[in-house]
Design a protein around this nucleic acid. Sequence first.
DNA 1: ACGTTTACTGACAACGTTGTCATTAAATTA
DNA 2: TAATTTAATGACAACGTTGTCAGTAAACGT
Lengths: 337, 337
Amino acid sequence: MVTIKDVARLSGVSIKTVSRVVNNLAEISPETRKKVQQAILELGYQPNTTARNLVNGQTNTVGVIIPHSADYIFTHPFFTQVLQGIAEELSANNFNLLLHLAHDKAPYASLYSQRKVDGLILMSIPIGDPNLQGLEENGVPCVCTCRISETNNSTSWVDADFAGGVEQAIEHLISLRHRRIALLAGPMSLVSVRLRALGYRNALQKHGLPAADGYILEGDFTSESGHALAAKAMKDPNPPSALICGDDMMAFGAMQALKELGYGVPEDVSVIGFDDISLARFSSPPLTTIRQDTYEKGRKAAETLLAFMRDKQNATPRQIMLETSLITRNSTASAKN
Amino acid sequence: MVTIKDVARLSGVSIKTVSRVVNNLAEISPETRKKVQQAILELGYQPNTTARNLVNGQTNTVGVIIPHSADYIFTHPFFTQVLQGIAEELSANNFNLLLHLAHDKAPYASLYSQRKVDGLILMSIPIGDPNLQGLEENGVPCVCTCRISETNNSTSWVDADFAGGVEQAIEHLISLRHRRIALLAGPMSLVSVRLRALGYRNALQKHGLPAADGYILEGDFTSESGHALAAKAMKDPNPPSALICGDDMMAFGAMQALKELGYGVPEDVSVIGFDDISLARFSSPPLTTIRQDTYEKGRKAAETLLAFMRDKQNATPRQIMLETSLITRNSTASAKN
DNA sequence: ACGTTTACTGACAACGTTGTCATTAAATTA
DNA sequence: TAATTTAATGACAACGTTGTCAGTAAACGT
């Protein structure tokens, strides 16, 4: 390995002078600079990041934490886009991205205390995760891409307005004269899912419609689960005429189940998804869905974290809610009767 | 920050002894060990990874390189599953995963020469990438998740048998009496795409069918591109009765286009995808597709790389081809005439 | 001509850990 | 009893870089 010493020897200066050239510090005479640069080129010298990190006391690395329990997260286009937003923002700021699968043997808190990273971005942390509290107490810079409780405001997060999104969807359905609307929700252990249910209840109440609890079904964000829940919903003696799904994957599964049961979409049943993943345009029928800007979610989370790490003293929790918008396609139509 | 010195002071031993306890080295008297462990617990000491890496001359980190040019890669379920395979294998071996977006300002070769990683996994590297050659010359341990040329065998890779996969698909279509089969391919700059075309030509030739070059259309792995190419293919004066798509996303787009043009799938036109992403089961109709085990691809790539890094001396390139299998669903049926 | 500033450079310590080697005391052997 | 092995521990250098501070020579001011 070529070190700064080798460069110093070849160019006949001290290691400190080489360091100055490499880091563009202070005044260096043009001849010296040239000489050193020449040697660097000749030897192909590259500074050793580890050594730098040790003296600088930082790593220029951000850890992105994925809860290992949530297996579906990897098959979910939503996840990848958030990750892309994070990755590009970090890359633009010359930060490294350490992708970490959280599980019991590798708790994510140690990433910081072992100085592998300077800060953390937490993806999809379930409610009441005990690790999280420890982070805050130790002043670890961190940002969540999801709310971690309905009330907590000591943690920074960037998240979509799930309640508002579902309300938009229900307004749309009601304008199409639907009155029996079911919610095929994700796992209730996630705040985002609870907020969707909240929006659902609020909107129905606003229009004097009963929010029958049997109309809220709990699943897990996979197509399989959407498929199963739709079938279950339609078995109701008074089956819904519209389904709002926790995400687009569930919506695809739901539409498939409806077809298998002989229901036309949207003639018999309207279906609305959540996310607007790229495939939503290409399902049959193309899916009406509540769009959230997942890329921006990731980008903003990274941006927020970078700001924190730059100014750890004045860091106060920041909470950013991103607007959703309803994308109307062909999976929704007027109610039959 | 709590350092090994603090632990040494509190427990009244030398730093070296603390180090021995932490790393479970040599013989330490039970009393000393207990004393030190007590101090570690009391202070909440965690070893500093950067300092360790510096003296050990390694990072226990693997870089996963994503070509930034390939924007579609992030929206592609395929990518995430390979990544999951890599992530889990690395995690199981206590290695860190550094996710790196390759672009001009951040060439991936420097990740190794700057000692940020001990080895590299290259995702979806285009043919003739100049960085790659440099890696090999410098003895950087690296494995590709795709072949980087038809002939090169100095690089290690793990990849699916694309040619064989397409041949399986064509056998299936021919058994359904299809004779006009088009290939909606991905970008020809990728070897995997060229191999699919090779399989296509071979299989047709084997059955004495003409491999009309107009029947191979080049796209880019997105649904949009599948949509556009299908429309184009059907404009042929002698339109195909079956479409083999470069991946499932393209197949979804293609099916949508066919429906818009009034063709029934599979009554009028059969469609076959590639990958078998989780959604393939839930399209309408459910998609017949060539399955590749993307998770295993990632896992094996990581496994191979880990083996290399353990034994850099005897490292010879290893090339692993994974079998594909045809999953028959409802998007294929007998040819009409 | 002499003091003072300025521009440039280098010696050395430090970051937190592990490796090498020496040291001590106890245990074993002759 | 003396010599030798063994077990347990510590002093110090090293990893490759940056920060601190001091040093030298030239340029400037009076």
